[in-house]
Write a protein that binds this DNA or RNA. Structure first.
Lengths: 238, 238
DNA sequence: CGGTCTAAACCGACCGTCGGTCGTTGACCG
DNA sequence: CGGTCAACGACCGACGGTCGGTTTAGACCG
């Protein structure tokens, strides 16, 4: 007797927020439905009143992320006074800045999310994002074609390929970053990988060489330094 | 009292064979350790005498597949009297032929494997294969550079990119094939997708246009026809 | 205003299944 | 005959998911 009743959307978002926090903290597989309801202090039945299954919750969470990403992308695409090359560069820059600004969260996410147990999360995230973002990306490519600086085989397919490669590069780079302390040479591999990716984009788009720049050794190093600092902090706590 | 004792390797392969059959039939997630031991008529403990965990079994199975693939790839790479373009083309042709020859199995696999529940399987398969095959692939690219017909940014990275894109194209194409009965137009989308992929490879390799041919509408149609036939067979059984 | 009725938010005991453990048993070989 | 190791299988805790029932807020009405 006596429990709190909330509006549907409010409770739903509460579930999504809690799940997001726990997924980021422990990963999808290691977060049980019980963990979520315990933290919210609600019963099992309540969870299944809002979601068909645990995977359904994941889908809705992914959807929420995607919605935000699409909003940001559309804003960029519809910015005037920027040519296609500038738009793509600021697209990459925006992602990079986001990562740098949230260093701590990013490092935590790298360590937690990039395990086999979170494959489903990453995969759903990627699939849904590509589906939603590629059309926006293709618009920029089309603009570039009109401006005469791009010459892709197919705007939509090229957009998809660039995204696919980005995801793969990202996964590999994260793996390399996580063992950068042990293997300092990884930073060179990362730089080479990003450079190759950058050149590949130019070729796929048929853009002039040097149109884009993704890599800055300085940026990569930020994450190395930070990891070392984190270890120091841990040691200090002991 | 009274049970069969087998040589370590024999039992191990028996486990791998049984697991492979069941994974192909029902998928990784839906196949429980109990399913496997029931079919082999051994006890739970026996399973864990051979494998650390269910995931460990998957890893070993993936390893077995990869070993076979690498063997075939090395054979192709070391074939003389073939130039780089011919090698790549016969590489693609070999995969295509393998799929066509095992139509029934392929269609079964498409339906079973390409679900979220088998992500781990596909992902491990892909990761491990790339790791093992990309170096062989890179050798062909290097040969092409020496022969003056390729001009890639980086042989190893380009190999990896082509594989990554192949995986993504494959996943998308399978999804489109599976709903080809409902949406007959999918065949055009598939053809366009493969064509775009083909052109992308040429650009990444810096190869002359028309060097490669992956697509043949005829081949795609084989799988459509076969699906229809399968449905007829099902109906006849009723 | 107080009573009543309904939809739906919420509850939590319960279930089957799963991956994994461990102390024991029995087969084979030197 | 003793040691080694394959093989056994009862058992465990945790998990995702179910279901019949309870509580609440608020609409409606006399």
């Amino acid at each position: 007797m006596g429990y709190i009743v909330k509006e549907f959307d409010e409770r739903l978002n509460e579930f999504l927020d809690t799940a997001q926090q726990l997924f980021f903290q422990k990963g999808y597989a290691k977060t049980s439905v019980n963990d979520i309801i315990k933290q919210m202090d609600v019963a099992k039945g309540t969870f299944y009143h809002y979601f068909k299954s645990k995977i359904d919750l994941l889908d809705r969470l992914v959807e929420r992320f995607t919605r935000k990403a699409v909003l940001a992308a559309k804003e960029l695409v519809h910015r005037e006074n920027l040519n296609a090359v500038e738009k793509l560069n600021s697209f990459f820059a925006a992602i990079r800045d986001l990562k740098v600004e949230n260093k701590e969260l990013m490092i935590m996410l790298m360590k937690v999310m990039y395990t086999d147990e979170n494959l489903i999360f990453r995969h759903k995230m990627f699939k849904r994002n590509i589906e939603a973002l590629a059309p926006e990306f293709a618009k920029i490519i089309r603009q570039g074609v009109e401006e005469g600086c791009f010459d892709p085989v197919d705007d939509r397919e090229t957009a998809e390929m660039i995204f696919t490669m980005a995801m793969n590069v990202n996964e590999t780079v994260v793996a390399l970053m996580l063992e950068m302390e042990k293997k300092p040479k990884n930073i060179d591999i990362i730089e080479a990988k990003l450079k190759a990716y950058e050149k590949a984009i130019e070729r796929l788009l048929g853009a002039p060489q040097g149109s884009f720049s993704l890599v800055e050794r300085r940026i990569i190093e930020i994450f190395r330094v930070d990891q070392k600092e984190q270890e120091k902090i841990k040691e200090e706590k002991k």
